[in-house]
Simulated assay, not measured.
Amino acid sequence: MLIAAIVLTGCTEPSEPTVNLHRAVEIGDIDQVSRHIYWKSDLDEPDAGGDPPLHVAARAGRVAITRELARNGADIEAPNAAGRAPLDVALQNGRTQVAEMLIEQGAPLDAQVTLFELIEAGGIKRETLNFLLDAGAQLDKPSSSGEAPLHIAIRNGHLETVRQLILAGADVNQPAGDGRLPLRIARESAPGRDARFIVSTLERNGARAEPPP
């Protein structure tokens, strides 16, 4: 019986990993990731760029690997070098399936705050915008500075985000906290590659430069 137990143990114990954990996550090698988990690798150790394995999985859209890491003790709220949690990274990259799984595992989400942060940081993917709206974010709700998401996108010259917000139903004539309408903000913003296209996009969608008398 003892010999049988030894043989069984030898057959079921996985080999030690042969691929770096972050690389295994990046390429989607769940066998290597499982080996790292079995052999007690540090699941929160950042790579050279400051991203722990969960962040790598979130960025790459590795749903199954993200689930395995989270279930085996990886910190689902740990910040990377840029201060972003895995859920933030998933949403920034349009990985909504990963985001759903992380929320199921207990990751907190303030949909409105996340909407503001992603637009301020450089835009938002359509999948993420729809995800956040479904999670309770409001398109025309102003931030503490008085800017709605559309105002922020215009100020930062994010043409594609402006288009996405308008398609989702953002009010093109909602005044910002300083009273300026989106079209006026666009016309007064510093000129950039997409500035004139933002102006024309707003105009085509019924935006006014000044409120009606």
Rank of each mutant, 00 (worst) to 15 (best):
L2H: 09
I3C: 08
A4P: 00
A4Y: 12
A4H: 09
A5W: 10
A5T: 09
I6F: 07
V7F: 12
L8F: 14
T9L: 15
C11V: 14
T12W: 13
S15G: 13
S15P: 11
N20V: 13
H22W: 05
R23V: 15
V25H: 01
D29W: 07
D29S: 13
D31Q: 12
D31H: 11
V33L: 02
V33R: 00
R35F: 07
Y38M: 05
D42A: 10
D42G: 13
D44Q: 02
D44L: 00
D44F: 02
P46I: 06
D51A: 15
L54D: 04
V56N: 08
V56K: 07
A58K: 00
A58I: 05
A60K: 15
A60L: 07
A60F: 05
R62C: 03
T66I: 09
E68K: 14
L69Y: 01
G73C: 08
G73D: 06
I76Q: 00
I76S: 01
I76R: 00
A78T: 06
P79G: 00
P79F: 05
P79V: 08
A81M: 12
P86L: 06
P86W: 09
V89L: 08
V89I: 15
V89E: 14
L91Y: 03
L91N: 04
L91K: 02
Q92D: 11
Q92A: 15
N93H: 14
G94N: 11
R95L: 02
R95S: 10
V98N: 01
V98P: 04
M101Q: 11
L102T: 04
L102M: 07
L102I: 05
I103K: 08
E104C: 06
Q105N: 09
Q105K: 11
L109W: 05
D110N: 15
Q112W: 02
V113N: 12
T114I: 07
L115R: 02
F116W: 11
E117A: 14
I119L: 10
I119E: 07
A121F: 05
A121E: 12
G123I: 14
T128I: 03
T128A: 12
N130K: 09
G136V: 03
A137E: 01
Q138I: 08
D140K: 00
K141S: 13
P142F: 01
P142D: 01
S143M: 03
S145D: 15
G146W: 01
E147P: 02
P149I: 04
P149V: 02
P149Q: 03
A153I: 08
I154G: 01
N156Y: 13
G157L: 02
H158M: 07
H158Q: 13
H158R: 08
L159D: 05
L159H: 11
E160Y: 08
T161Q: 07
V162I: 06
V162P: 04
V172N: 09
N173W: 09
A176D: 12
G177D: 05
D178E: 12
D178Q: 03
R180V: 07
P182V: 08
R187Y: 00
A190K: 12
A190W: 06
A190V: 14
G192Y: 03
G192Q: 02
D194Y: 14
R196F: 11
F197P: 00
V199Q: 09
T201Y: 03
T201F: 04
N205S: 05
A207T: 04
R208M: 14
R208P: 05
E210V: 13
P212Q: 10
P213L: 10
